[in-house]
Each structure stands twice: as structure tokens, then as C-alpha cells.
Design a binder for these strands. Structure first.
Length: 616
DNA sequence: TTAGGGTTAG
């Protein structure tokens, strides 16, 4: 008699040799003939191989599950995970719901962890939670077939219930709890992640800490991220390759140069300085913090052969700071070193051309990408080309390029054209682009604000009023602008129209004095026309413009940072023209170096001028 | 018995 363990082991070894769906089906036929295909372990592994280990076999895994008489939790879990990485991630959620409907199966920690991850990636966390909640209610009430009963119950779901629902998990081990924290963080549920991490995890590992740290940053809570990193060090946790790249990415996102330098020191001491991943993250941090000299140093001293990520990061970093020629030089060095560029490299190359006004070069690189390297352009590449022509003021060429694109232009493409129209004041083309945007993505308030600004600059006040009215009726709210500045390794953020507090008051007081000196010594007059504030009095206009968040950050930095230090500001939106003028004047009158990272590039202000050459 | 987590280039 054959031992069942032996049968299962031989089944596994057969499956492990399968690399294609075809060979898997042959093995399946073999199982069928020997009668082992009715075994749950065998089918479970068939599903695992088709859903995860072999490409393009997910549909086969699904059909295996559908045809198996009594599928178990392992099979459902495997399929939930398989769908989460597929073209139809939503099927993870439906598979989970099917599992809940099967009275013979109970979800375990794997089920919750996998489906939560999918839900977070789909950004449908609320639907997922609501779905589970409603479903458990509907089971109790005998309404199983009506999964989503209605909005009344949806509205009744409170945070307390959400936590309760996650507590349904029968087993909660360390790994699944870590995945849940990541899921909460990705879906913006910082409070729930914190309550799990601080309240319900007596045992944490390095992944738990890292998940929290990068999760905080993902939600804009940079101070909490840095604080937790410090706490993790204090509690004796030794950093590793992944946690270091993680904290560096937090510094890069925040533009936290001082904290980044501390982490750099920690890397030098820990011996992780020889790792490519860590070096690449460090390089990116210096680029995103605007310190191109440190970035060059890290890049040039990188041990061993540089990877495509190292080269592309360097090219992108140079491009962002307006060093177009050097970015292209590095690109050619990359080619010479035998590393073949990919689509992402070309995005950086095209970006470099566009921000340095190198139109002809950009056109050549765009052709080279396809002709020499066989890379098909994506929407991002097309977007770069529209930006390239648009920035250079060749708006008709930009429009012409869009009409000749082999794919249907998306909202980003039209938005890029709209942005260019705004810079160059082309009202007709702007209206045309906005009409396209109204079809594709009508809810973006930024688009309406841009058009309204274009009308304002052209003096078309009636049109401005119409746009504002339509924004109000559609309840479109402007994205609030914020700026951050790092002082003594602490990130201070400023939001226009923020409530009063000590920091804001300090910034406001200092700002008033700064503005007076700019007016008296620099001849500053506020830029009010383009600020969509035509319907209020002049004096109010000035006040409203004056309090843009980057000005508050500047004033705060000037009062807190010692002389000679570069003022580094990070802003979430594009800098407005008036703030740009203020930064230029301030750099001259107060003999300051100001570095402003906005949504699209770096502005380096020195002695009254900016590295963007007033073009952004 | 089979499975799972945090990170780096636009």
C-alpha cells in the first residue's frame, strides 16, 4: 500500500517541474487517471501553481476551484492572492465574498490578509469592509443573497465596527497583522493602523516598524514617521537593507535633507553602504532634497557597476534641477557603459529636454527610444512630448502631436496642454483642452482653476465668473496648497488659511516684515491678476496672496534657520507666479539661497534669479 | 503537509 504522504510529495515534485499551463494540464491528467485529483491537497497545489507560480493560468485556477466539490480555505486564499496581482484585482474581493457564502469554509488569517491587501491596492477599502460587515449582518438576518443591502447600512458602518470586523479573524499572527497595518495605511486609515501597532501587538518585528514608518509618510505624517524611526533605534532594533531604503524614501518624499544626512551616517557605520538598493535610495534622497552635489558624490562613489536604477535616478535628479545638458551627458555615459535604457530612463531624458528647452533633442530621443531600443511609448512618454512642445511655446505643435498619437489621449495629456496654454496665455486652445477634460475627468478642480486663471490674465472677467459659478455648482473644491520646511530635523507644514498657532503666528509676523522690506527695497508689488481673486477688494487680494503656504514656510525658515543655511521648502502644488517673484527678491535682498521643490521641479533662487529661468 | 509582510528610478 502506498503511503499518502509519499503520493503528496511526488505530486508536489511533479508540479514543481511545471513551467507552463500546458505541462500543468498534463500533470493534472495524470492525477485524474490515478484518481488523486479528488484530493484537496492535490487540487490545492494545482490551484496554487496555476494562480501564482505559472503565468497566464489564473483562469484555469478559477475553474479548478469552481469544479471542486468542497473547496477549502487554502484554495480560496490562493485564488484571492492570485487575483490581487492580476488584471482583474477586483475578483479577489468577489472570491472572498464567495468564500464567505460557503457555509463549510471559514476564512483564516491568510484570507483576511490577502483580501485586505487587494482592497487597499484597489483603494476600495471602505467597500471591502462594508461588504464584509454587511455580509455578516445579512447572514444573521437571513438575507444572504442580498449582499449589498443599501446605503442606509453603509452609512451605519462606524470605525468601531470596522475594527470589530477585522477582529473576526480567528488567528492573527505577526505576518498577517503586518499586512493589515500596511492595508490600513495604504487606504488612509492611520488611526486604525496605530491602534493595531501600539495597542494590539505585544510582539513586533522589523517589518512591523517599517510598515508603520513608510505608512505614516504615505499619509503625509512625516514627523510621526521620523519619530518612530528614532524610537525603533532606541528600542534596539537594528536597521536592515529594506528598513534603510524605506526610511530614505520617507526623507526623499519629505525633502528632509538633515534627517537624510543622519540616515546616511547610520548607513556608513552599519556597512550597508555597499548595497546597490541602499545607495540608489540614498542617491534619490539627495536628488529629491535638492542637493545635487551630494547626489553626484553618492553616484560617482557607488561601489561596483551601477544599475539602471542608479543611472535613471541620476538623470532624473539632474533633470528636475534644470541640469538638462548634464542629464543628457550622463545618459550617454550610461549607454557607453553597456547598460540599455528602458522606458523609465527615457521619461527622465525627455523630462530633461523639456525642462531645459531642448526641443530638437527631445524629438530625437523620442524617435531613438523606438528605433534603437524598440521601446513602445506609453502615455507618460506622450505626455513628456506634449510638455516639451508646450513649455517651448509651440502650442500648435503640441496639439498636432496629440491629434496624431496612436492612442486616445487621456486626461493627463490634455491637462499638460492646458498647463502650457496657461503659461503662454492661449485662451482658445485652453478652452478646447478643458472641454476634452470635461469628458474625461470632470471633477478635477485644478483644471477649472487653470482656465479661470487664463481668463483672468486675458481680462475676460465674465468667463472667470462663469467658471467659478460652475465650480461652485459642481461643488469642486480647490486642492489646498501646503508647504513643508525642515528645522532641526523636524518637519513643519503650512497650509494656506490654517488655524492660528504659535508657529503660524511666528511665521506671519516675520512675513509681514519681510514683505515690507521687499516692497521698500525690492520694489515688490503683489501679483493679483492671476490669482483668481478679482471679486474681492485689492487690499484683501494682497493679504490672500501673501499668505500662500510657501511664503509662510520661507518666513518661518528665515526666523529659525541660522545664517548661511539653505532654505529648503517642499510644496505640493506648482508655485504661483507671485510667490516665485517673492522668492527671487528675498534671495537677493536677504542674500539667501532658497530651494523650492514644487509639484513639477526644483527652483533654486540665488541673487534674485531662479534656476528655472522663470519658466515652469 | 501546500501560502503570506516593509524598500530604491518618472
Amino acid at each position: 500500500m502506498v503511503n499518502s504522504t509519499t503520493v503528496e510529495q511526488s505530486c508536489l515534485s511533479l508540479l514543481n517541474r511545471c513551467k507552463t499551463l500546458k505541462s500543468l494540464k498534463q500533470v493534472h491528467t495524470h492525477f485524474f487517471k490515478s484518481g488523486t485529483d479528488s484530493d484537496a491537497f492535490v487540487t490545492g497545489n494545482l490551484i496554487l501553481h496555476s494562480a501564482i507560480l505559472i503565468s497566464d493560468a489564473l483562469h484555469h485556477a478559477h475553474s479548478l476551484l469552481l469544479h471542486f466539490p468542497n473547496p477549502d480555505a487554502f484554495m480560496y486564499n490562493t485564488l484571492i492572492r492570485g487575483f490581487s496581482d492580476s488584471d482583474h484585482p477586483h475578483n479577489s474581493l468577489t472570491t472572498f465574498i464567495q468564500m464567505r457564502r460557503n457555509p463549510n469554509v471559514k476564512p483564516d488569517s491568510f484570507s483576511f490578509a490577502f483580501v485586505l491587501k487587494s482592497a487597499a491596492n484597489l483603494q476600495s477599502f471602505d467597500k471591502f469592509i462594508t461588504g464584509i460587515q454587511l455580509h455578516s449582518q445579512s447572514i444573521t438576518h437571513g438575507l444572504d443573497t442580498h449582499l449589498f443591502v443599501g446605503t442606509t447600512l453603509v452609512n451605519a458602518v462606524t470605525s468601531r465596527v470596522r475594527v470589530g470586523c477585522i477582529n473576526e479573524m480567528p488567528v492573527r499572527d505577526l505576518i498577517s497583522t503586518n499586512i493589515m497595518i500596511a492595508g490600513y495605511m495604504k487606504s488612509g486609515e492611520v488611526r486604525l493602523a496605530k491602534s493595531l501597532f501600539f495597542g494590539e501587538m505585544p510582539v513586533k518585528d522589523d517589518v512591523s516598524w517599517s510598515t508603520m514608518i513608510v505608512g505614516f509618510a504615505h499619509n503625509g505624517c512625516f514627523d510621526e514617521a521620523f519619530e518612530l524611526f528614532i524610537q525603533s533605534r532606541r528600542s534596539g532594533l537594528r536597521p536592515n537593507e529594506v528598513s534603510l531604503t524605506g526610511i530614505l524614501s520617507v526623507c526623499a518624499q519629505a525633502g528632509a535633507f538633515e534627517f537624510g544626512k543622519t540616515v546616511h551616517g547610520c548607513i556608513e557605520r552599519s556597512g550597508f553602504v555597499s548595497l546597490h538598493t541602499v545607495n540608489n535610495a540614498l542617491l534619490d534622497t539627495y536628488c529629491k532634497c535638492g542637493n545635487i552635489n551630494m547626489a553626484r558624490l553618492v553616484f560617482d562613489r557607488m561601489p561596483g557597476r551601477k544599475t539602471i536604477v542608479s543611472w535613471t535616478t541620476m538623470v532624473a535628479g539632474l533633470a528636475m534641477q534644470g541640469y538638462g545638458e548634464e542629464a543628457l551627458k550622463r545618459f550617454h555615459q550610461m549607454e557607453e557603459s553597456g547598460i540599455e535604457p528602458d522606458g523609465i530612463t527615457f521619461i527622465s531624458v525627455l523630462y530633461a529636454c523639456s525642462h531645459a528647452g531642448l526641443v530638437e533633442h527631445g524629438v530625437r530621443y523620442f524617435s531613438m527610444m523606438k528605433d534603437r531600443y524598440g521601446i513602445d511609448p506609453t502615455y507618460e512618454h506622450y505626455g513628456c512630448m506634449v510638455d516639451l512642445y508646450g513649455r517651448a511655446g509651440e502650442l500648435e505643435k503640441a496639439h498636432d502631436f496629440i491629434t496624431k498619437m496612436p492612442v486616445k489621449p487621456n486626461a493627463v495629456i490634455w491637462r499638460t496642454l492646458l498647463g502650457a496654454c496657461s503659461v503662454h496665455g492661449n485662451v482658445n486652445l485652453a478652452e478646447f483642452a478643458l472641454n476634452k477634460l470635461a469628458e474625461l475627468d470632470p471633477n478635477d478642480s485644478g483644471d477649472h482653476v487653470l482656465l479661470s486663471n487664463i481668463y483672468a490674465v486675458a481680462g475676460k472677467w465674465k468667463n472667470v465668473a462663469t467658471v467659478r459659478k460652475s465650480m461652485n455648482s459642481q461643488r469642486l473644491v480647490k486642492t489646498p496648497g501646503w508647504s513643508m520646511i525642515e528645522v532641526d530635523k523636524i518637519m513643519y507644514s503650512f497650509v494656506a488659511g490654517d488655524e492660528q498657532n504659535e508657529v503660524i503666528n511666528e511665521a506671519r509676523t516675520n512675513l509681514r516684515n519681510i514683505m515690507l522690506r521687499l516692497r521698500d527695497e525690492g520694489g515688490y508689488a503683489p501679483e493679483v491678476i492671476g490669482s483668481v481673486l478679482h471679486d474681492i477688494e485689492d487690499e484683501e487680494k494682497e493679504n490672500a496672496v501673501v499668505t500662500h503656504s510657501e511664503k509662510l514656510a520661507l518666513a518661518f525658515g528665515m526666523s529659525r534657520l541660522c545664517d548661511g543655511k539653505v532654505i529648503r521648502i517642499v510644496k505640493n502644488l506648482r508655485v504661483c507666479k507671485d510667490c516665485h517673484t517673492v522668492m527671487k527678491l528675498a534671495s537677493k535682498i536677504f542674500r539667501l539661497e532658497i530651494l523650492l521643490r514644487d509639484r513639477s521641479r526644483f527652483h533654486s533662487f540665488r541673487d534674485g534669479s531662479c534656476s528655472c529661468r522663470d519658466y515652469w
